[in-house]
Nucleic acid binder design. Structure first.
Lengths: 324, 324
DNA sequence: TTGAAAGCGCTACCAC
DNA sequence: GTGGTAGCGCTTTCAA
């Protein structure tokens, strides 16, 4: 690897001049610039970012903390982050924290050891802000956090309940996600608001988890616990998919015997059969806009909007009954 | 952030001693070590990895190149890599290259700028070895590559075909993945070997892609093109799931009218209904063992096995007919 | 407009 | 056993 010294020698100037040319800082004569550019090309020189960040105390890397990379929703967020980061010449380091505060702490420590310039977090843990640097919360915004991009979950909850309400005949079961997650309580609020407005009979089933591995158990428990329902509002797509499967196992047809709606619009909700009607979370946008916000913070650009709110939308497929 | 100098001052020793204590290199008296440890604790000192890597010309970061992070198979691989890396105190930087050689080049350049100590690649692009450092290929091993961990795809292909053959009545359609990918040609070889051995009527349908977005089109084309088949061997689970859906749309029941088998055992194959019978690729193990191999390479430990081969296995669920 | 030189935090050599 | 110091590759004063 060629260094800035090699470039300087070849170009017949000092390293200081090369550095200035590299960063467009200070004065460099047209002539010197030409010579430097030529030398850079010849040596295939690329600046060593490690040395650069040692001096600047900040590297062009951002950290991304995800709760569960095997849940297909998060890779999409990650892709949004990655795309935006790459546009701005940043790399992203990914940390899978699995709702484990210890892993989160470990990562935050790593991050600061590497002079990471900012972090994006979808982690669930409260008070997890172990950094003084730029930090933006994704998806699970709390009131106290300064910067965040999240989806209007109350609205999403309303959308889901409205869609279900239109064709509900019997009781509606609402599956509630973990109470610690603001987003899932908001959805529940939205669900219930609508159900009450329309005087629809419902019951809330606490599932208390978002982990993919538990979805099947939830589905099983649901049918063991209740019998007199014909509609369910699931807390996420994974759960909804598990419920479809369990319903089929029990000889029920979807949506005739049981209609249901998911939440997230993960890629697979499209491939299930019947295709899952769900609420689309703008996963990619969340990542992309989150990264944009973070990068603006890092570059100390003026921020118009500390809390970006995205809108969810109803994605109609085949798990809701037709007009009845 | 406290630095090594602060520690030295507080402990009343030189920075050299602190460094030795930190790295267990050279002699440090018990007394000095105690004082240093005390000072470290007091100042909450953590070594600056950037400075360390500037000197060592290598950071405790490994790069992971993935072809498509939204394909649920890859996040599992990533998790295996991440777990192993974290055990050894390494971080992983993730790059989503989307079978795009340019993005791959960009990442490799980033990696070298950050003195990354090694890279793990599941990327499809040939001759993509833009590095002289430790490099291990995952999943898509070619003959020429020195280090790799991959699954025995011919065996996987055989397993799939054997399972299908047991209950095939009419023609079997074999969906072939992209020819550029060694793994998918190997699977096809395995498929055909068995089908020929058993004198089963089959046809090969070239799909030419692994991208999730194309799966539905492939499924549609399949039914438009052929009518006289009752079994399909899909090139991956995503495609298989799309075929189930298309079959249902056309009023066919699975597995009675159409039996099929996937490949990969992605998490969702379990949640589909009926549950998808498939060939399990040891995704997590691939990542975990790949990282182990890479880390051994980095630490210049003796390598027993340059090309690790993992065994696929049949995962029986509900898309194959019972004994007929 | 340019270059010499200091220094970012750390490691490793060498002398004591 | 220990400490002084050079130097990793870069940026940024400061003088010239």
């Amino acid at each position: 690897m060629a260094t800035i010294k090699d470039v300087a020698k070849l170009a017949g100037v000092s390293v200081a001049t090369v550095s200035r040319a590299l960063n467009d800082s200070g004065y460099v004569s047209e002539e010197s610039r030409k010579k430097v550019e030529q030398a850079i090309k010849e040596l295939e020189f690329t600046p060593n970012e490690v040395a650069r960040s040692l001096f600047q105390k900040s590297s062009k890397i951002i950290g991304l903390l995800l709760p569960d990379i095997s849940n297909p929703y998060f890779p999409i967020v990650a892709k949004g982050v990655e795309d935006r980061a790459q546009e701005k010449g940043y790399m992203v380091i990914l940390g899978n924290v699995e709702d484990n505060p210890e892993k989160e702490t470990t990562y935050m420590k790593f991050f600061s050891q590497y002079n990471i310039s900012g972090v994006l977090s979808v982690a669930v843990v409260k008070n997890s802000r172990h950094t003084n640097g730029p930090y933006v919360l994704l998806e699970r915004a709390s009131d106290k956090e300064d910067y965040s991009v999240s989806t209007d979950d109350v609205l999403g909850g309303r959308l889901a309940a409205e869609a279900i309400a239109k064709h509900a005949k019997g009781k509606v079961i609402v599956i509630a996600g973990p109470k610690e997650v603001q987003g899932s309580v908001d959805r529940l609020i939205g669900n219930i608001e609508v159900l009450k407005e329309k005087y629809i009979d419902y019951e809330v089933f606490e599932s208390g988890t978002f982990q993919i591995s538990d979805a099947e158990k939830i589905a099983y428990d649901l049918f063991e616990r209740y019998t007199d329902f014909d509609s369910v509002i699931a807390s996420n797509d994974v759960t909804a998919l598990a419920i479809i499967k369990e319903a089929h196992k029990r000889g029920l047809t979807v949506p005739e015997d049981l209609q249901l709606i998911g939440y997230d619009n993960i890629p697979f909700s499209q491939l299930s059969s019947p295709g899952l009607t769900t609420i689309g979370q703008p996963a990619y946008d969340t990542g992309y806009k989150g990264a944009t916000l973070l990068l603006n913070l890092i570059e100390k650009k003026p921020i118009h909007n500390k809390k970006v709110k995205l809108k969810p939308e109803l994605v109609v497929r085949e798990t809701l009954r037709k007009e009845s």
